[in-house]
Design a protein around this nucleic acid. Structure first.
Lengths: 191, 191
DNA sequence: GAATCCATGTAATTGGTTACATGATTCA
DNA sequence: TGAATCATGTAACCAATTACATGGATTC
């Protein structure tokens, strides 16, 4: 629950704040929100529609029907003042600790039970996945720099948020690559 | 669903595999499982009881009633052969990509909307949290080395799994500390 | 006297995923 | 011809959290 400046209380869940954040950057439809969020966190389109509908009722955002030819019409949502305040209040409030939901890590926990070949395959599959992710986000980061004409350095712009989050990802990925390689070597030495 | 060697099919969810993994290391009660898992992934004790009960019915593990004085009695579970096979099959099967559930990251996504002071507080709170985590896991890692009498280097022991996972965590934490500090500096330069 | 630890479990509620329904357009 | 993209939505189901119930021992 977030207390607005007028004392109004909203009931927004975590996905709700993510959706507000996406629409705050660029006004868009529910369908587009899913495309923007899917690389960032798990979302289902069926989750989004009821949430935007409720947030519109609460006056956090509002929609304009955009008529299209050849494609179905769409509702483009944009952020309203109470929505911006709700986001700010949420950012200022204490945060829950991060949660790990990672099949790979869960499997390493028990891979001492498996044959050496299965262990190595698991780590190699992970390495491949991370390399793909690094390629994807490196390209995205470069594209951002070109579009923007340099490195975004103004913290008041959404491009700054985007840039620091992609940089963070790349740093963590590169370190996991090193860790995976060290692990493969350690496992190779003994068996 | 995991295919056992006899063609039997089990229905185990992700938490189920985590529980099997904990019990595979050391036989213990549902209550102890939660203590072992809680630093590793989110668990609720109310989730564990129905899952272990079902896995016992499926013959993946079995329990012994341990009578205690001054404390309530407990059921200590230990892994059975079909349970070990289910774990191995799961490790060999393809993995889902990792998911991020991190309030902090979600907030950075939208923190360009917030005043500079709120942005800095957010990052500083994160820094403090990571420092606490580093202290906790450094101590745990050292304790493991002392108990074990050196660095576990045999991949067939659960101490090896434990050691590589804690090392991974510490590497990622230390890199996030650097990223946070760089971010604070970047934000300080402009405002 | 209140809170926390130990230890097990059930019930209610919320959150999330999958399936269904609709329908034109584009691409292999 | 079948799949994928665009676009909205509802319904059913499964997963997860929170609340409830019980009760002795210990700690503040």
């Amino acid at each position: 629950m977030a207390d607005g400046a007028q004392g109004k209380t909203f009931k927004i869940n975590k996905l709700g704040y993510n959706i507000l954040g996406v629409i705050a950057r660029v006004p868009q439809s529910g369908y587009d929100v899913v495309k923007a969020l899917s690389k960032f966190r798990p979302v289902n389109i069926s989750q989004v529609y009821p949430i935007v509908a409720e947030m519109e009722e609460q006056g956090l955002l509002s929609s304009d029907e955009v008529v299209q030819t050849g494609k179905p019409n769409k509702k483009v949502y944009h952020l309203l003042e109470p929505g911006r305040r709700a986001l700010q209040d949420w950012i200022a409030a204490p945060s829950d600790p991060p949660e790990q939901r990672d099949d790979f890590v869960n499997k390493v926990y028990s891979f001492w039970l498996s044959p050496a070949g299965d262990r190595a395959s698991l780590v190699r599959d992970r390495l491949q996945h991370i390399h793909e992710e690094v390629a994807y986000f490196s390209a995205k980061l470069e594209a951002l720099h070109e579009e923007f004409g340099g490195v975004p350095d103004d913290p008041d712009t959404w491009q700054f948020s985007r840039q620091v989050l992609m940089t963070r990802r790349l740093i963590l990925y590169r370190n996991e690559i090193d860790w995976c390689n060290a692990l493969l070597q350690k496992m190779g030495e003994t068996k």
